[in-house]
């Protein structure tokens, strides 16, 4: 379960103070599917980075279960990301020189999983997203939808508690978008994940249990 208390984040850009998050307080129970919407520059990605332990707030507290994310050292935040949080990015962010299977394996490398088990789990994860026959292909040989499936397999291979998706369908056509969202929704349901999706797309947001809207760093609930 995520708990945010009075979280603020400010950046200095060209001597100007920019407030990305302003005194945000909210909680996300475990197993919830949450959609975050809002205009560009409203603070969606910053909020997702705070939830993903990629950055610390300027003030306030964020906790994931027992872990106080706002005050942990980098090394421990890295450990939490490695074990508990999966990421899916708009641009897929696959390593272009590695095959689909090897890309999935990168998520298991920091956990010290032995090579043989790593390979087996990676192939299982690819099979779970329908890409068992594409394991040996590099990203350049895959379609956008297939690349995003590989990215989802990479995020889920370590069996995390939380999956954070930043515009996961932003680069895909409508048909592929629906396929990916069906996949994510199925995995969320099957695995009991906490799934947070940042999206511009209302069709995607409508699938969520809960919808948050963020403008000028301020979060509001949307029914």
């Amino acid at each position: 379960m995520y708990t945010l208390e009075n979280v603020s984040k400010t950046y200095t850009q060209s001597k100007r103070q920019i407030t990305a998050l302003a005194d945000v307080s909210l909680s996300i129970p475990s197993g919830q599917l949450v959609a975050i919407q809002g205009p560009t520059g409203g603070g969606k990605s910053t909020l997702l980075q705070m939830l993903g332990a990629l950055d610390r707030p300027t003030s306030g507290r964020i906790s994931l279960g027992e872990a106080e994310l706002s005050h942990l050292p980098d090394r421990k935040l890295g450990g939490i990301r490695a074990k508990e949080i999966g990421f899916v990015f708009q641009g897929f962010n696959l390593i272009p020189t590695l095959t689909a299977q090897e890309n999935v394996e990168t998520a298991l490398a920091p956990l010290g999983v032995p090579a043989e088990e790593r390979r087996r789990r990676a192939l299982d994860a690819l099979a779970s997203v329908g890409l068992a026959d594409r394991a040996g292909h590099v990203p350049g040989e895959l379609s956008g939808g297939q690349q995003q499936r590989v990215a989802i397999a990479r995020a889920l291979v370590k069996e995390p508690d939380v999956l954070l998706a930043d515009e996961p369908t932003g680069n895909l056509d409508e048909e592929t978008r629906d396929e990916i969202m069906d996949l994510l929704e199925g995995l969320w349901r099957d695995r009991g994940l906490t799934l947070v999706v940042v999206t511009h797309d209302s069709a995607v947001a409508k699938r969520a249990e809960r919808r948050l809207h963020i403008t000028h760093g301020t979060v509001t609930e949307r029914r």
Binding site: G52, L54, D74, R75, G78, G79, R81, A82, K83, G86, F87, F89, G91, N93, I95, T106, A107, A109, P110, L111, R154, A155
Partner: peptide
Amino acid sequence: TREFGTLKAIGWSNRR
């Protein structure tokens, strides 16, 4: 940059 940022995001340590 994106590659290393992604690897760090999925838990790769600085040392790795």
